[in-house]
Amino acid sequence: MVNISIKGLSVSLGRREVVRRIDANLKPGELVGVIGPNGAGKSTLVRAILGLLPLREGAVHIDGEALTSLAPRDIARRIAYLPQGQTLHWPLTVERLVALGRLPHLGPMSKISAQDQAIVQEAMERADVTHLAGRVATELSGGERARAMLARALAVGAGALVADEPLASLDPGHQIDVMELLLGEARNGKLVVAVLHDLTMAARYCDRLLLVDKGELVAEGAPREVLTAERLRTVYGIRSQFDMTGPAPFVVPLERIREGGD
């Protein structure tokens, strides 16, 4: 399984420093939620961890090996990635789209094997897209497309999964299904990192939260430690009703705190 160590990670986009001096250790067997307001640097952080953005400072190690020493193909075998958004440019069927998840394991000019095909079928079942196998992915609804892309990430069979806003476009039932699936992956020993906006889902399913604001890690820990009234006020600028003590914790935003207000 995969362990990711982050030390002093800073990333700049153009002249703007988007992520500043973040330290974290992401361990196998846990579901880690990355939360924070829009523009906080969450997606930039996870893309940097995957080697998709250059680091301005700091280092990332995967199982003790420096990220910079690993080939992109090697990273792709170890960490499956579900990017934000589901833009598709080719009219592939869902089954062929999901099969793309096996590419990191195939050699040049290799064909998908019976074992690969079995992994693809299992991934489609787990993401609830088996009935869409013959449909053209570009013609799916946003929610169907989101689940197909999740199936592609599952088909990689990596020891870690990084999912950037995996609940976007999903109805409430499928949101629950996806969070249960991600938690199941973690309970089976994988490292799962999910960028989330739904604080109730983050509180209910995540083992640990990283709260990012203005590019900095402002809090880290169990959901009940991170999601406090004061942090929701200062980071998100909201008043909320919440209960972090029961078996089904929840966070309900009530109103935006306007400048000059209480």
Rank of each mutant, 00 (worst) to 15 (best):
E259V: 14
R208K: 09
E139N: 14
F242L: 15
G101M: 05
G221W: 11
V11M: 06
R96M: 10
L154T: 04
M244E: 06
A229Q: 15
M244C: 11
A194M: 02
V192W: 09
T234E: 15
V32T: 05
A186R: 00
V136K: 10
L170N: 07
R20G: 03
G51R: 01
Q175G: 09
I257H: 11
R187S: 12
T68E: 15
L196D: 04
D63R: 12
E17V: 08
E122H: 03
G237D: 05
L191W: 08
E180N: 12
G184A: 11
I22A: 09
R47E: 10
T93A: 10
G14Q: 04
E125M: 10
L183P: 00
V136T: 13
R73I: 02
G157C: 05
A114D: 12
G142C: 07
S69I: 02
V120A: 06
G215Q: 00
L227N: 13
V251W: 12
N25C: 14
H105P: 06
R15K: 14
G143F: 10
G159F: 09
I257R: 12
P249H: 08
A148R: 01
M109R: 14
A248C: 10
S5R: 15
E57V: 03
Q121L: 10
E225C: 09
I79S: 06
R135C: 02
Y236H: 08
R208F: 10
A158G: 02
L199Q: 01
L97T: 12
S169E: 10
G261W: 13
V120G: 08
P54Q: 01
R208H: 12
D128Q: 13
V19L: 01
N3C: 02
R256Y: 14
D23Q: 06
P108R: 09
E180D: 11
S69M: 08
L13R: 12
S141D: 10
V218C: 00
R16F: 14
G189A: 06
I79G: 03
L254Q: 09
E230P: 01
G159H: 05
R47F: 07
P172C: 00
L103W: 12
V162K: 03
G184K: 07
E180K: 13
A99T: 12
N3S: 13
R204N: 05
G246V: 08
P37L: 00
L92H: 13
S240V: 15
A59C: 13
D23S: 07
L92P: 10
G142E: 01
E165F: 01
T44H: 05
A71S: 14
V34E: 06
L181M: 13
R73F: 02
A66H: 14
Y205T: 00
K27P: 03
S169L: 06
P253G: 04
L140M: 04
E180G: 04
D63K: 11
H89V: 07
F242Q: 14
